[in-house]
């Protein structure tokens, strides 16, 4: 049996829909035992890439191996070694959680006793034992997703594909899914996870490939990717535009580069190194000078920032134009 180091190997993948190139020379190497984030905006080609690697879609060019087998030539061997959770929780709504896992277990060709035991095991692992005999209709979004992941894990696959596993979930559901993914990683499953959220990739991934227009445009660790966009920024919005110069001055004292001011938005922002010290310092200065502050916070670089930088597509709008400023209480990301 071939035992290559790479769990996923994609070389020059091409996929066309008419004139549209959904994938256009997509390359990716995912070492075994890692969590790889595939990050990109809507329409970038994330789903297409996952569907090709999961043998659902035929490729028009290039070559792809998953768990050591070619997806085109030996799809069945690939299917025995992968799990897939798509954009929706693909479970049977009418059946109970337990019935779902037993059914999928049988369809993975487990014997009936094996299917029963494996179902119990997975219900336990994904913390669904209590809800096991309830209809899936009664499940929360996070529970459905966990059941969906459990169903993907029936054969304990080498590679698990997850296409936007937390889209549409509330923060609690999102956390449940993140924990589930971490538990798989601890067992050595290789995970390829697509997401639109840098934050999510940051939480889970050892490495991130940024994809745009069907091609990987950056491939690095989350830390390195974020440092390319300059790390954390401090941001102040004042109530009176006349106070903007004062705010500018206050921010400059703590910034690691010249702050940007935006009169229309009454906003000053700048990159900072020591985020908490910077925040306290600016807050104190502004208070001492009697400046009325509408908003003050730290914000992490978003996917938009990474994108704007990587594609060089600064389109006039300042990177702070997104109302996604994080509050000063944001917790540190702790990748699994």
């Amino acid at each position: 049996m071939p035992t290559p180091q790479a769990a996923i190997l994609a070389e020059g993948l091409q996929k066309r829909y008419g004139e549209k190139h959904a994938l256009d020379g997509f390359d990716l190497t995912v070492p075994r035992g890692t969590v790889y984030g595939l990050l990109g905006p809507n329409g970038a080609g994330k789903t297409t890439a996952v569907r090709i690697l999961a043998t659902l879609l035929r490729l028009d060019g290039g070559r792809a191996q998953v768990a050591g087998f070619d997806v085109t030539r030996e799809p069945r061997k690939v299917r025995r070694r992968i799990g897939l959770t798509g954009q929706h929780a693909a479970v049977d709504e009418i059946l109970t959680g337990r019935q779902n896992l037993r059914m999928f277990g049988r369809l993975f060709h487990l014997g009936s006793r094996q299917a029963v035991r494996r179902a119990d095991e997975l219900l336990e692992q994904f913390d669904l034992t209590e809800a096991a005999d309830k209809g899936v209709k009664a499940y929360s979004g996070g529970m459905r997703r966990r059941l969906d992941i459990a169903a993907s894990m029936l054969l304990a696959p080498v590679v698990l594909f997850m296409d936007e596993p937390t889209t549409g979930l509330d923060p609690r559901g999102r956390n449940e899914v993140w924990n589930a993914v971490r538990s798989l990683v601890a067992e050595g499953t290789t995970v390829l996870l697509t997401t639109q959220y840098l934050d999510e990739a940051d939480q889970l991934a050892d490495r991130i490939a940024v994809i745009d227009s069907g091609r990987v445009i950056a491939d690095d660790t989350p830390v390195a990717l974020k440092s390319t966009v300059g790390g954390d920024r401090i941001e102040v919005v004042v109530q009176d535009v006349a106070d903007l110069p004062t705010a500018h001055e206050a921010v400059r004292r703590v910034a690691s580069a010249e702050p940007d001011s935006d009169d229309d938005a009454r906003r000053v922002h700048a990159p900072v190194r020591d985020r908490v010290a910077a925040l306290t310092d600016v807050a104190r200065t502004l208070q001492d000078r009697g400046v009325d502050v509408e908003d003050l916070g730290l914000r992490r670089p978003t996917l938009d920032d990474v994108f704007l930088l990587l594609t060089g597509g600064r389109t006039g709008s300042s990177p702070a134009a997104e109302p996604s400023a994080e509050s000063a209480t944001t917790k540190e990301g702790t990748p699994a």
């Binding site: 798509g86 929706h88 999928f104």
Partner: peptide, 18 residues
Amino acid sequence: GTKGVTDRFRSMPMASSA
């Protein structure tokens, strides 16, 4: 199809005719 159950089946090593 819309729920992704068909895709799940297709990504599994089961008989696709089933």
